[in-house]
Design a protein around this nucleic acid. Structure first.
Lengths: 286, 286
DNA sequence: GCCAGTTGTTCTATACGCTAGACAACTAGC
DNA sequence: GCTAGTTGTCTAGCGTATAGAACAACTGGC
């Protein structure tokens, strides 16, 4: 037993162990670089400075930087310093909210889908309740990972009432957006309610999204209803924030003194002023 | 030596370190509980069973469970087992997006503000660019923490061009919403652009929000523009997802086949069907 | 060329995560 | 009451992450 364990540990040394403090520092710096808080091309604080700033030893700082260097995020030059590598980072996808969700601003980039699991079973209580299912009613549960340019960016778990799910096949799901399938099957879509939050990557999600465990994730839960008020789809989506974020443009509305905003269908309001005339057909739910 | 160690451990028990494997297991179990995969009220596998299942020692399992217990997710009963606690989670504040942002659904709960810092200085490059400032133009930078029922839930960093910031005082900021101050000063507000993402709690933010370092946070960046197109306010907000989330109701819009949604001012669409008729005056930017 | 400051490398000592095992206290079912 | 199984507590020891420090190699600006 101790044999296999030590062997296991020995084998996974390469797998970027990166313990506690070093890991935290790495995540933090990763975030700052991804968000542009530390501008590309600029020099990071020196290792001793970082060590002091974060209250850790220089060894730990170096371990964190090793991780970033291994991912090609930084360049280290002896005697000069550590620099954020110039934009080789593909710009994150920006989902325009005003126009409304579901619309991926793809700008010609290729998206793909990997179907992780597909099965019919009894849903968790919370899902059953949200969809307004009858007691014991089963759902089709599917887990998919969406890719852009071959890179995973979202982890989607959907529950669809069995009666609706049966109208399309597993391979349909791997190629056609779910909402399209739902409509094709005659399940009219009328209303949706969604909540946006944040969470951490659990081991399985982390692996699917090529992340480290404990990385931050954007979380979206959406429940779609038909005109009869019955639930049609329950979506739980997790997004890599470095590759996907929500954006919206707002205009002042209402009378003066009435502080109220209204979303506006902003065309191509990408964060870097990208032109991005997206095709009206590039619709996806992920 | 062993004395100081045990003493140290005794002292920092509260600080809940939660290293690697334990953390990993904790996240995994958290996920399963949150998703309902392990139903509320049901018994978890025993500690030895979990240890065997995940290939870790029982001590590690216990550390993971300690973390869940500290968060009130599970109940442990000696001799009986460990049980998933029935939903007692205090409902988070829900910001209704459709109606539009800035609107806190407070439902009578008292909010407060703690002013962390207040100063005029040169803003970071990214902020200056977003606001469209002239080179070298300074901004008023303020950091505030918003509370609800005495509990911190958001960490707000705002940058306002110096010329505008000078029109109100430090104490104004601690009591009046920023947007109200801006308008009072005659700085008309016309348009805003915002991005929603997720990130991790850095040490300072973690402390201000009473969180552990590395906790997930909802991140909102908003840039407000006046009618002349010049930036008026740059807001970077971080929210505790357990106490604050965004919610919106959507209605199908557009012709059939045109998969398009439009936000709708949903009154009281709280996740648990709360009635919540919020006062139109309860406006805040946090 | 000099020098302050940087990364790269190595060392020691300590702190601590993790394992393995044993035992106590308790519970539920028979 | 008895017993199997549970959580609570403790011990001992190993491997390693971390702290702290020193030194080498290198860079850029003066």
């Amino acid at each position: 037993m101790s044999q296999s364990e030590s062997e296991l540990q020995g084998l996974r040394v390469d797998a970027s162990l990166e313990p506690l403090k070093a890991r935290r520092l790495a995540l933090l710096l990763r975030e700052r670089i991804a968000s542009g808080e530390i501008a590309p091309g600029s020099r990071l604080a020196s290792e001793p400075a970082l060590a002091l700033e974060h209250g850790v030893s220089r060894v730990t700082v170096r371990r964190a930087l090793d991780s970033l260097a291994a991912d090609g995020l930084i360049d280290r030059r002896v005697g000069a310093g550590t620099f954020v590598r110039e934009a080789d980072a593909p710009k994150p996808i920006v989902a325009d909210f005003a126009n409304m969700l579901t619309h991926l601003v793809e700008m010609g980039r290729r998206t793909g889908v990997r179907l992780i699991s597909f099965a019919y079973a009894q849903p968790p209580e919370a899902v059953a309740q949200a969809l307004g299912l009858a007691a014991g009613e089963r759902t089709q549960r599917s887990v998919r990972v969406r890719l852009i340019d071959g890179q995973p960016f979202s982890y989607l778990t959907t529950h669809v009432p069995e009666r609706i799910g049966l109208t399309y096949s597993e391979s349909d799901l791997a190629s056609v957006p779910l909402l399209a399938l739902l409509e094709r099957s005659g399940a009219a879509v009328d209303r949706a309610s969604q909540t946006i939050s944040a969470t951490l990557a659990s081991p399985d999600v982390a692996e699917a999204l090529a992340l480290e465990i404990g990385s931050p994730l954007l979380s979206l839960t959406r429940v779609v209803f038909g005109p009869d008020g019955r639930g049609v789809e329950h979506l739980h989506a997790l997004y890599r924030p470095d590759r996907y974020s929500f954006q919206m443009e707002l205009h002042r509305a209402g009378a003066d003194g009435d502080r109220r905003w209204s979303p506006v269908p902003s065309r191509g309001a990408g964060r870097d002023g990208e032109a991005c005339p997206w095709a009206p057909s590039t619709v996806a739910e992920g």
